[in-house]
Structures are given as structure tokens and as C-alpha cells.
Computed example of a mutant assay.
Amino acid sequence: MSISKEEARVMVLCTLMLAIGVCISLVVLRCHDDKDELPEADNETLTTLQHKWNAHTSHDRRGNDIELTPFPFDPNHADSATLCRLGLKPWQVSNMLKYRREGGRWRSADDLQRLYGLSKSQFEQLRPYVRIAEADKRKVYERAEWQSNYEHEPRPKTEKFAEGATLPANTADTTALKHIPGIGSYYARKIVDYRERLGGFVSTSQIGEIEDLPAGITRWFVLDKADKPRQLRINHATFKQLVRHPYLSYEQTKIIVTHIRQYGAIRSWRDLQLYKEFTQNDFKRLAPYISFK
């Protein structure tokens, strides 16, 4: 039997309508059967949830709170269908699932009142039915107990040196420095940082250049004759490397860099004597730390 063109068009149209109906049914069933989590709230998802929500709630056209249908549930593990049956609004369900996807957890029933759009009366309806798994509660309690123990546990005091003890100025670390009377973590770090910026101490008196250290601090240090400071190659160092040295100011560093760019390598301190920014005392202090090679 032959089929007319009109009949063929009708059959194609019926097939398309059937396919569309199947797709719509799958979307609607998702709110029932989704045992994992919904995607973020887009228009289609919210529409689907809205239909399911309508089936489980009664509308108040005057805008009053919707009466929920509470039953025991765990907000950390309930699926979308369960949350719909409680009577939560579709966008609230979507936000709850998004919060969980991002690692959020409700640690107690009272935490549920943070849910955006949940009124006080609705929270009071749901609160007696909230069930939080012990595993989710325990994380909070263990952390609180750990913090409490840590805060009340006395910190061991660092034993201080008796008078006459000394430390090697160029190798003592912050732990050793804290044994000096009057030196804690802050000042120990300042000493080590200053030593690193210098390139090493060539005299224990340099330790006294650090601000706010206790009086007489230098008596706790000694130098090894084998100690040699780290030198800066003045003609090859960068501006940043030069200006970081405690004995070079910003203006002095600019002069060095400009001189090298205009006149070539600096061969000795004589090349810098004509600049008013440098004094003989500057050259004396810098001498152990600068190389002209």
C-alpha cells in the first residue's frame, strides 16, 4: 500500500511529538529518582522542581509561609526528591545541593537556619526532624577539643644561657639565638635576616646595628677566624641585589648603576669618590662586601 505525502508528514510529526514527550517525562522524573545531586539552578531545572514542589505543597496566594510537610531527614545526605517532599522551594533545594557539592556541611540542626529564604517559622517546623550523622558532628567536636587542649597546654619555655656562654655569630640559627636572655622568636629572626642581607658579620659590633636589641647583646657572640663574608660583584649585581645590602642606600645604588651604564665598570672606590653621596666611612664599611671583579 502506498502512503501519500500528507500521511507521511503526519507520521513524522507524530514521531517528533512522541520524542519530545519522552524527553519531558525524563526531566520530570529526575526530581523523583535523582539519588545524587542536581545541577546548578537554571530555568529548566527550576521549572521541573516547581512542578514537583506544587504536588507536595499547598499554595498561599496571600504570600504567607507555605506549610511544610516535615519528616525525619538528613540535610547532608537527603536527595532532591526527599527535599522536594518536605515542601522546600525549588531554588532552595538547588542551593542546598550546590552547597553540599562545594564541601559544605550542616553540623547541627541549628545550622539549617542559615538556609537562604527559610523563614523562622519554617525552620521551627523542620528543626525537630533534622537528623545529623555522627560522622558529620564529630569533625566539629574533635576540632573544638583539639583547639581547647592546644590553647590550655603550657608552652615549653626556652632555657636561657648563663652569663659567659657564647654563640658563633655567623652560623647560629634562630633556635640557638633564643637561648640568649632577652631574645625571642622575633629578635632571633631579625638577627638572622640582617646577617643574610649583609653577607655575614665581620665584627660582633655589627649585631648592635639591629634596632631594639637588648643592651650588651654583642657579648653573647664570637667570630671564627675562618669566617669570610659573601661579596657582591658590584659590576654584575642587579639594582635589587645592591639596594638590599644594609650599607647601600637607594641613592647610592642609583649612582653605581648609572655610573656603570655611562662610564663602564667600576675598578675601585676611587671611581665613586667624586660623588657626594659616598663618604670614606661608607667605603670602609663596604670594603669587605664588594668585589670589583
Rank of each mutant, 00 (worst) to 15 (best):
E6S: 15
R9C: 06
L16K: 12
L18T: 12
C23W: 02
C23M: 10
I24Q: 08
V27N: 01
V28C: 05
C31M: 12
D33H: 13
K35S: 11
T47F: 09
H51Q: 12
W53P: 04
H59P: 04
D60K: 13
G63A: 12
D65Y: 08
P72C: 02
F73M: 09
F73G: 01
D74I: 04
N76C: 02
A81M: 00
L86R: 01
W91G: 01
Q92M: 13
L97I: 11
K98T: 14
K98Y: 13
K98D: 14
Y99C: 01
R100F: 04
R100E: 10
W106A: 09
R107E: 04
S108L: 00
D110H: 03
D111C: 05
L112W: 11
Q113M: 08
G117T: 08
L118T: 06
K120I: 05
S121R: 10
Q122G: 04
Q122M: 01
F123Q: 07
P128R: 03
Y129V: 02
R131K: 11
I132W: 02
K137E: 11
K137Q: 08
K139I: 13
V140A: 12
Y141M: 07
Y141Q: 15
E145W: 01
W146V: 00
S148N: 10
H152T: 15
P154G: 07
R155H: 10
P156L: 06
F161V: 06
E163M: 01
G164D: 08
G164L: 03
A169Q: 05
A169V: 08
A172L: 04
T174W: 09
G184E: 10
G184Q: 11
S185H: 13
L198Q: 08
G200M: 00
F201I: 03
T204F: 03
T204V: 15
I207H: 02
D212E: 13
I217A: 06
R219H: 12
W220T: 08
V222C: 02
K225Y: 11
A226K: 13
P229Q: 11
Q231N: 01
Q231G: 00
L232E: 04
N235V: 08
N235Q: 05
H236S: 10
K240D: 14
L242I: 07
L242N: 02
R244T: 11
P246D: 09
L248H: 01
S249L: 06
Y250E: 13
E251G: 00
T253Q: 04
I260H: 05
Y263M: 02
G264D: 04
A265V: 07
I266N: 06
R267F: 09
L274N: 15
K276I: 02
E277Y: 00
F283N: 05
K284F: 00
P288A: 03
I290R: 00
